[in-house]
Design a protein around this nucleic acid. Structure first.
Length: 436
RNA sequence: GGAGAGGUGGCUGAGCGGUUGAAGGCACUGGUUUCGAAAACCAGCAUACGGGCAACCGUAUCGAGGGUUCAAAUCCCUCCCUCUCCGCCA
């Protein structure tokens, strides 16, 4: 348990013992993740911390011993002798404690930068350009006409209003109307039903959150730039992963209740601070959207994490398959992993107009990186308290998913065929003009 | 927005300067009892770091930070959080 001064809360990190025993592994992780981090600096700081701590503890032991004497002293003379002695000790102790504090702050600064170790199976690379495709599903849609963009299709069918979106909400603003609205709800409904078959319980989660769950999940302090902040110092979350993980924060999960499978639904807010020139048109990249997110807490075993990681992918794939959207799955390379991520899969959906696969899902696991910081524990079979493992992954992010959906299902006359699984929600098999 | 109350171990809840890592209860573990179980009774039971082969020893932790003191869960200051009442509001 450590004090992180900038945020004034307690933060857990990768275990220092583990780092000491596996310094090469950690250094290698930093290199693979393309992070500028030197384990040697941390270990030097840790040696210093431990040696000063030892001195401080010796003084404190002396002081505690004297306390017993004072308390048990029969006459005030004996008492005064000890008290006078302790006054001298106090001065020395004070000095050492100041030293310790200084070293400790330096140590903490380095500790929060320690990356989690990527899995062996993660390919090495600098950026998302080197993510490795390992699976495709569905053939890229073939049209006997020139396909148009989702913007044209949806504007034409009065499903979207981007001009007024910008007028009212500013850059990247949008309105979803009529069947645009209905299609979104249909996607959500279908997502909930899909996940239910896999045992997930749905939760509507808040997005306006205190900083603690952001620090715990790893979005702060590193990602401050990407978050909206209110005048009351709360932040708007960019994914339900944050509130759902916060849900169990500082708790001990009752015995025999793992794994916990949540399906979080929430509005999501992202500043997109580093991507001003990217995807400036349409629904691919917006500041405000909705997402249904899978979150799992499981026993602290690598094989459990791996098993659940594959399951989250399976759930997302079965969702995409049922929608009939062509997609591929990539393993994200080391340089594209977050500080805490061990491994990540992205699902990318085919976008005909762009003739590109675009990311719609992101599914990752963290081992105990997040639960350590969030202080989420459970009792294992030996009765020992352990940090759980955590995972999360997209199930349905709208409106981004609409882009691929409407473009793949567009028809020559400008109408959109409704995927079979969604027809019951829309009450029709085709979206046409003037039916909105 | 106004006025109060409070933050102590896995949970509940006492303590309000020194013998308190912290009473009591619950939960949990072991034992006695029982054909078995429940109940009852007895015992054990916090976490982290450091040292030791080990029994064990040292240090820290009573929301956070700072201060007073030889000594702080206990006194003072600042901050954070929670609850209750009033007002406003979906």
């Amino acid at each position: 348990m450590f004090f992180y001064p900038d945020f004034a809360i307690l933060v857990y990190m990768l275990d220092i013992k583990f780092i000491r025993e596996n310094k090469d592994l950690v250094q290698e992780a930093a290199r693979k993740k393309r992070l500028d981090f030197n384990v040697g600096d941390l270990l030097t700081a840790d040696d210093k911390r431990l040696s000063i701590l030892k001195e401080v503890e010796t003084f404190r032991a002396l002081q505690n011993e004297a306390n017993q004497k004072v308390a048990g002293a029969l006459n005030s003379e004996d008492r005064n002798v000890v008290i006078e002695e302790m006054k001298l000790v106090k001065e020395q102790l004070q000095k050492k404690e100041d030293e310790l504090k200084e070293v400790f702050i330096e140590w903490q600064k380095l500790m929060v930068q320690v990356p989690n170790i990527p899995d062996m199976s993660v390919p090495e690379g600098d950026s998302d350009a080197e993510n490795s495709e390992f699976k495709t599903h569905g053939d890229k849609t073939i049209f006997d006409f020139e396909p148009v963009s989702h913007i044209d299709i949806m504007s034409n069918l009065d499903m979207i209003d981007l001009e007024r979106g910008t007028k009212v909400a500013g850059f990247r603003g949008y309105f979803l109307k009529n069947d645009g609205f209905r299609l979104s709800f249909a996607l959500w409904q279908h997502a909930v039903e899909t996940a239910q078959k896999f045992g997930f319980s749905p939760i509507m989660a808040p997005s306006l959150l205190r900083k603690e769950p952001f620090i715990g999940t790893g979005y702060l302090p590193q990602g401050e730039e990407d978050l909206y902040k209110t005048q009351d110092s709360e932040y708007l979350s960019g994914t339900a992963e944050v509130p759902i993980m916060g849900y169990m924060m500082d708790e001990v999960i009752p015995e025999n209740s793992l794994p916990l499978q949540y399906l979080g639904f929430s509005p999501c807010f992202r500043r997109e601070a580093g991507s001003h020139g990217k995807d400036v048109k349409g629904l691919i990249r917006v500041h405000e959207f909705y997402k249904i997110e899978q979150v799992v807490l499981c026993e602290a075993r690598h094989d459990e994490s791996v098993k659940w990681h594959e399951t989250l992918l399976e759930v997302a794939e079965s969702y995409m398959e049922s929608l009939g959207i062509p997609y591929r799955v990539v393993v994200n390379c080391t340089g594209d992993l977050g500080l805490g991520q061990v491994k990540k899969y992205d699902i990318e959906a085919w976008v005909p107009k762009e003739e590109k696969y675009r990311e719609t899902h992101s599914i990752s696991y963290f081992h105990d990186f997040q639960t350590r910081r969030l202080n989420i524990k459970y009792k294992d079979t030996e009765g020992k308290l352990r940090f759980a493992h955590s995972l999360n992954g997209t199930l349905s992010a709208t409106p981004r998913l609409l882009v691929s959906l409407v473009e793949n299902y567009q028809q020559a006359d400008g109408s959109i065929k409704v995927p079979e699984v969604l027809q019951k929600y829309l009450g029709k098999d085709t979206i046409t003009k003037n039916q909105s």
